[in-house]
């Protein structure tokens, strides 16, 4: 019995999108449901920082702690693709096998990025649910929150994947992923107000803190001057575009 790939019949976009969804199914859904320990592990850092902020700061920090937890979870899982990308390429040679398929590097990256979103979704759902239940966010806030989280997810995962393609040893990948997660998620104002910094605009440097600032503002948890929020939104959009272009043109797929 023989079959033929439907190269001609399937449109290019459909093929690529389906490829991304297959990658997300494997690396996101199947991985999460069969190895829930990784799900718990990815929640550890954001949840523990959020809980600490709430315990020591009290109810007034509940909103900011949960918003920080959501932002950090997406950022940590996004840059965590440094590890997944390097592991699949260097240890399993999975990326090398996929080169002999119609999948483009962008579709592969998008698939891995979607899988990081799948991993993040249970934690995000719980934290958003608590925020909504406690009245910090309403359906009216959904659009700016969704846009900020989308741009943060795109930036962090594209950056994580691009870096993974330059690594020559998997052991570096886990370390670099952890360092990046720490730097992006805790050095910048993710779990505290940007106005605590001498230069609040530093919050716009990291996609994680930029998203946090936008969500804090949209939900009314923090009251920022509009130029700061606009700077965060502009920076986040530019980073999303820049890191996506980097993944498209600078990640290593076919080598020279």
């Amino acid at each position: 019995m023989r079959g033929r790939p439907r190269w001609a019949a399937m449109s290019r976009i459909t093929t690529q999108l389906r490829g991304s969804l297959v990658i997300a199914w494997i690396n996101g859904w199947l991985a999460m449901t069969r190895m829930p320990v990784w799900l718990a592990s990815s929640l550890t850092a954001p949840a523990s920082i959020a809980l600490m902020i709430i315990f020591f700061g009290g109810y007034q920090y509940l909103g900011i702690g949960l918003i920080g937890g959501i932002s950090m979870l997406i950022g940590v899982n996004g840059v965590g693709l440094v590890g997944d990308g390097a592991f699949y390429r260097l240890e399993l040679k999975f990326q090398n096998m996929l080169i002999a398929t119609p999948l483009t590097p962008v579709s592969y990256t998008l698939g891995l990025a979607l899988s990081s979103l799948v991993y993040s979704s249970p934690g995000i759902a719980v934290m958003l649910g608590v925020l909504a239940y406690m009245g910090f966010i309403t359906p009216l806030d959904a659009a700016p929150i969704a846009a900020a989280l989308f741009a943060e997810w795109l930036s962090s995962s594209m950056l994580g994947f691009t870096i993974s393609t330059y690594l020559r040893d998997t052991r570096y990948a886990w370390a670099i992923g952890n360092i990046m997660g720490f730097a992006l998620g805790t050095l910048f104002p993710v779990f505290y107000r940007a106005t605590i910094l001498p230069i609040p605009y530093l919050a716009a440097v990291s996609p994680v803190s930029a998203a946090s600032v936008i969500i804090q503002y949209a939900s009314g948890v923090s009251h920022y001057a509009e130029p700061l929020v606009l700077a965060a939104a502009l920076s986040l959009s530019l980073q999303a575009a820049l890191f996506t272009l980097m993944a498209m043109y600078k990640s290593k797929w076919r080598s020279d």
Binding site: Y88, I99, P102
Partner: peptide, 20 residues
């Protein structure tokens, strides 16, 4: 991209994903 539909590769030391 025109030859990739025609080929498959199992690289050196390739391993299938373990949890599937």
């Amino acid at each position: 991209s025109r030859v990739r539909p025609l080929i498959s590769i199992i690289p050196q030391e390739a391993r299938p994903i373990s949890f599937i």
